[in-house]
Design a protein around this nucleic acid. Sequence first.
DNA 1: CTAGATTGTCTAGCAGTGCTAGGGTTCGGC
DNA 2: GCCGAACCCTAGCACTGCTAGACAATCTAG
Lengths: 184, 184
Amino acid sequence: MPTQSRRERARAERHDLILRTARELAESVGWGAVTTRRLAEAVDYSQPVLYGHFKNMNAIADAVALQGVEELTVAMRTAREDGGLRALAQAYLDYAAEHPAVYEAIFVRPTDLSFGSPDSPSSLKDAFDEIRAGVEPFADTDPETLTEVFWSALHGQATLNHTNRLRPTHAKPRVDLLVSRLTG
Amino acid sequence: MPTQSRRERARAERHDLILRTARELAESVGWGAVTTRRLAEAVDYSQPVLYGHFKNMNAIADAVALQGVEELTVAMRTAREDGGLRALAQAYLDYAAEHPAVYEAIFVRPTDLSFGSPDSPSSLKDAFDEIRAGVEPFADTDPETLTEVFWSALHGQATLNHTNRLRPTHAKPRVDLLVSRLTG
DNA sequence: CTAGATTGTCTAGCAGTGCTAGGGTTCGGC
DNA sequence: GCCGAACCCTAGCACTGCTAGACAATCTAG
């Protein structure tokens, strides 16, 4: 049935268009200014069309977050295979700095995504496992806890960097110090 | 001039009432539900009265934040004098857990408060100095950077704790591990 | 090729938001 | 008693997320 699939294809394209546009909009003006009207305008459809693809505005941000967390995982894995935990940490912070709106969607914005539980999206678990793989060589007892500690430390630096609450000139020494002490 | 002072006293009381109510409201329903109408209703005045005391809604949250950061500093100092850095860390996380809305106002919400610069409120500098005093014994070279790293790590745990992104059962081991490794 | 059902899209509207202009009302000083 | 200043409220603006109902395009079936 080519007709069905043509419709489905068009639908999928609109879906991607909305997601892509929302992400660009968020990166350029911040999530606070990503409104249904502006987004609808940007994709050249009326507001209700958005609701034909997503439950609500929040679901759009969640979808962007899921895209992002997969990218983040890839970035961490690539870096780790090359340069170990230090490179992984840098890759994490680089991603947060280069895609602040996406990072915010994943880890800061109020979201319906479930994290700790069994029904959380597998991509979230994958990201966590990637950090775990990075710290595992340095965990003498409890890798799970060390993973959480390391991740929290990275997350703290990422958010405080972004909100200008840390000296922008000392980003690198902070990563160095964190990695060297936590792996001691 | 007792008349002047009576008016001023009434004004100051209203000011405090607004602040106190905003804080309670935020802690019970979250900042997202603290609207000018609800807040005005709660203090039994009309909306414009709020604007006679604060520039806007954001300024109210900022005022709550400044109150909170002073409380946090006291809590950290008391703990540190008693039990060193480990106690300070626990006090920090306890404060964040017990006053999530206040903590959010200080460190998460978009705010006009300036942090790094010379014109930032002294209470913010005091809080930072308090952490610095805690880590100083363990800084072999650069206490400033170690302070930022430690603070970021605490902040990360505080926020990820609160948004249910870490195992709630393992809060204490996380602090233990962080302190023991970072002071190693 | 046409009638009917389905799908897609829009306009218009709801209730809620932050914030403000304008007009009364109460208060303090003379 | 009177005037001016301080105070407070009603009403409204432009915006938000979200949805109902009408209309048009498309596909299915006879």
